[in-house]
Amino acid sequence: MASHRTANFEDRPYIDPNPLPSSVPHVDELGVTSAPLKSASFAIGQYCKDVNEDFMLCKQENRDPAHCLKEGRKVTRCAAEIITKIRENCNAQFEAHWQCLEKNNQYYQACRTQEGALNRCLADKLGLKKVIPGSPEGEVPVHEKKSPVFTRVQK
């Protein structure tokens, strides 16, 4: 018989207080919420390309969580590093962009002004350029359009 319950527990949190075994080196979790992550995602994708790909290839080998802990730590350290760098170099622009995303349902198209400022800063200070793989060649990429059709819902 089909159950009406979902697979997660809604009445109590899924908490297990046991710590990681000491054989696994400690790594600080990122502790960044979704809006800053979405704001920094293309920077993370470019800066941490090698470690990310390494990790995903490792996951492709074996889905066991224990199999890729080492690569996973590298991924987290790299992301923490680039986020610290963004905070050091482009804090104002980064803050403005993710606050805007937070207030606009995390729609990129609603925050092009702030994104432009952030992207320019990242390009100047860190040499990172936002590239969307697979977008049609010879056209202006969607994040650099002068007069886009879709902007904010309310102007």
């Binding site: 990122l30 995602s41 293309f42 994708g45 990310n52 990790f55 991924v75 990129y108």
Partner: peptide, 13 residues
């Protein structure tokens, strides 16, 4: 793509 770039990070955690 923004999500794809974040997948390794979230999966690792």
């Amino acid at each position: 793509w923004s999500r794809i770039h974040l997948v390794p990070l979230i999966l690792a955690e």
